[in-house]
Design a protein around this nucleic acid. Structure first.
Length: 642
RNA sequence: GCUCGCAUAGCUCAGGCGGUAGAGCGCUUCAUUGGUAAUGAAGAGGUCUCCGGUUCAACUCCGGAUGUGAGCACCA
């Protein structure tokens, strides 16, 4: 006689054990139809799940986040079924839910083509029409292995053999298609309303590049056609903000074959770069960093000493000259230690904070490059703090404060924190790792912000915290980092004189706020959709004359604004004002200053913002004040219209 | 690096069962001096990424290289 408590607190009594579907039915036929799964005492189950004791039950529909997960997971099965109908020789492997959709990996004798994708989608639709029941069953490991062996599903056999323990396994079957799965799943294939296959690409079996390559088909699935369309619109919006497209359209930078993965910065892009760099320089100075600069080419033996050559030889560019091998520096830290090593350092010198806008080159794998986001030539806002073990925690805390302030100035309020701990391949004793990891954990806990632990993802010389920004599209962009390093200073002979006159090795903290300027500017372009806040905009205002008559006045205004330190240009071409407005609006210049006879006469400008907002006519001085205030607010104001 | 696509004018893209190409925008010139998202006309502009092969003939078909896109792997 189970008593069921529903989410609204109401209770229902049933005579006999009752399934989730029956509960939904007893509440109403609409809900029964919409029911995709249930939540019984907090855990997700199929609608066929039978409840024989008192329980809290919620009916999951497409409107729940969990419902969407179930739809996507089931949709992966639906796709796998369609693939096997069309291509019986295709083997199924794994098909999980991912953000906004799902994928399924297949092993097949030939690659799937875009036409295949269409056919698969078509078949999926007809399976939906067939409205097949999806049924859960339990099999012993032995029987399951035997079944998949008989079906020729070698990967499934491998998966099951890899599952520890001896417990029974659950399976889901729709018609002749059966898959190993924890579930839950929707009750029948008629429940899918909106899905679309989006891409096919290679993916290694079990994510290991040593293994064979499977074919991964990605799809997206939603509770309604409307949601699907919203998602597709979101994709379009992201495409419009793509920094590679905007970089071209706004004339910021370009790439070409002769220098793969290395940006050619155009005047306007370089303007942004310079502003960002000047800003960081000022922040670093204010935070007691000492800026230095170190060589691009450094003898290969230094990289052998530092340990980088043995791990990253393939990813380093090198140059031979005069019978000597040099590496083009892939990072700055060994060079910073060389600067530290000049002259005898005392504990009184610590913490010693070096900063460098260090130009680095790395031979990134060709397939990993992506516009400005992943390049072979980049500049980091790099810094290394030499300190004692006692100073680690306060240095990390100070750094985090600096980092959050910088991110706020750039308009990012949502920062995600991750702690990566010791990897398998590493140097140094475990006790040192214990201390380093603990120091970072303490610093993280001191922030009261949530953070995520990523075991095994640390650098080979120490654990690290990574700081990721959430951009306006909700995408996560890793930028900042701080890494504790007990080993490199030791390897490269860094020493200081301690209070007791002994020689000690300093701890080194590697840290960057923006990461690489290239990447960070890519992130900024996409975050703002090219409409940079005024302090970052390559051109902050442009003066437009109505006719030739005002040209001289416009030039005077331009000169005057330039003298005040603003980035201003004038468009005095013989074009109609509407044409000029359109052109510079599309170039996303924050302020358009229109000057006709009226303005010349009264010493004013008519101000229009790039979003179309008309600020009206104001005196030149008032406009200067307005512009100054806008610049001084950095990116902390509401985000400008793209 | 791996799998599968893609590469045509400065840009965005059409195109052709193999007979050396076209649009819009931009650019140049001329006319127009016009008040808040495109004034009109004329003109110039291409080794169809590169290297091989097949063919009487290749931008088109085949092979390779390079770059690039999606995904995977990698990311000090």
């Amino acid at each position: 006689m189970p008593q069921i408590t529903l989410p609204d607190g109401s209770k229902r009594d049933y005579e006999n054990p009752v399934s989730v579907a029956e509960i939904a039915e007893s509440i109403g036929p609409g809900l029964a139809k919409a029911a995709l799964a249930g939540r019984v005492d907090g855990s997700l189950v199929d609608t066929s799940f039978t409840i024989d004791a008192d329980a809290e039950v919620a009916i999951i529909t497409e409107r729940d986040d969990d419902g969407l997960e179930v739809i996507r997971h089931s949709c992966a099965h639906l796709m796998a079924q369609a693939v096997q109908r069309l291509f019986p020789k295709a083997q199924v492997t794994v098909g999980p839910v991912v953000e906004d959709g799902f994928f399924y990996d297949f092993a097949f004798e030939r690659p799937f083509t875009p036409e295949d994708l269409q056919a698969i989608e078509q078949t999926m639709r007809s399976i939906v029409k067939e409205n097949l029941q999806i049924e859960r069953s339990i099999l012993s490991r032995k029987d399951a292995i035997a079944m998949f062996k008989k079906m020729g599903e070698d990967y499934k056999v491998e998966i099951i053999e890899g599952i520890p323990g001896d417990e029974d396994l659950s399976f889901y079957q729709q018609d002749d298609f059966i898959d190993l799965c924890r579930g839950p799943h929707v009750p029948s294939t008629g429940k899918f309303k909106a899905f679309k296959l989006t891409s096919v690409a290679g993916a290694y079996w079990r994510g290991n590049a040593e293994n064979e390559m499977l074919q991964r088909i990605h799809g997206t699935a939603w509770g309604s056609k409307k949601d699907l369309n919203l998602y597709l619109q979101r994709l379009e919006e992201a495409e419009k903000r793509d920094h590679r497209k905007l970089g071209k359209r706004l004339d910021l930078f370009h790439f070409q074959e002769e220098a793969p993965g290395m940006a050619f910065w155009h005047p306007k892009g370089w303007r942004i770069y310079q502003v960002v760099q000047d800003y960081m320089r000022q922040v670093q100075n204010a935070n007691r960093y000492k800026e230095i600069n170190t060589p691009q080419l450094v003898d290969y033996t230094l990289w052998e000493k530092s340990g980088h050559a043995s791990k990253f030889a393939e990813e380093m560019f090198s140059v031979e000259s005069d019978n000597r091998m040099y590496a083009i520096k892939p990072m700055n830290c060994p060079c910073h230690i060389q600067v530290f090593n000049q002259g005898l350092k005392s504990y009184r010198d610590l913490p010693l904070r070096f900063a460098e806008f260090g130009s680095c080159h790395r031979y990134e794998p060709s397939g990993s490059m992506h516009g400005l986001m992943r390049v072979r030539s980049f500049v980091q806002d790099d810094g290394h703090i030499f300190c004692t073990e006692d100073q680690i925690q306060s240095e990390v805390a100070d750094f985090m404060e600096l980092l959050f302030a910088v991110y706020r100035d750039f308009g990012f309020d949502d920062v995600m924190l991750r702690l990566s701990t010791r990897p398998e391949k590493r140097v140094g004793a475990d006790e040192l790792w214990d201390d380093a990891e603990q120091a970072l954990k303490d610093a993280l806990n001191a922030t009261s912000l949530p953070w995520e632990l990523v075991p095994g993802e640390g650098a080979f010389y120490g654990p690290k915290i990574e700081y990721s920004l959430k951009d306006c599209m909700g995408r996560v962009q890793q930028c900042g980092t701080i890494q504790v390093d007990f080993f490199l200073p030791e390897r490269l002979g860094a020493r200081y004189v301690a209070e007791d006159d002994s020689r000690k090795t300093p701890v080194m903290l590697h840290r960057a706020v923006l990461g690489s300027f290239e990447r960070f500017i890519g992130v900024l372009i996409e975050h703002f959709g090219g409409a940079m806040p005024t302090w970052l905009a390559p051109e902050q205002a442009i003066i437009l004359n109505i006719t030739d008559k005002q040209a001289e006045y416009c030039e005077k205004l331009q000169e005057s604004l330039k003298n005040k330190g603003f980035r201003v240009s004038a468009d005095l071409r013989n074009e109609k004002i509407g044409f000029k407005i359109r052109e510079h609006t599309l170039q996303k210049i924050p302020y358009l200053l229109v000057v006709g006879d009226k303005e010349v006469e009264s010493g004013t400008v008519a101000v229009r913002k790039r979003g179309g907002e008309d600020l009206g006519t104001m005196t030149f001085d008032d406009f200067c004040k307005h512009l100054s205030q806008d610049v001084a607010s950095f990116g902390r104001t509401p985000r400008p219209q793209p």
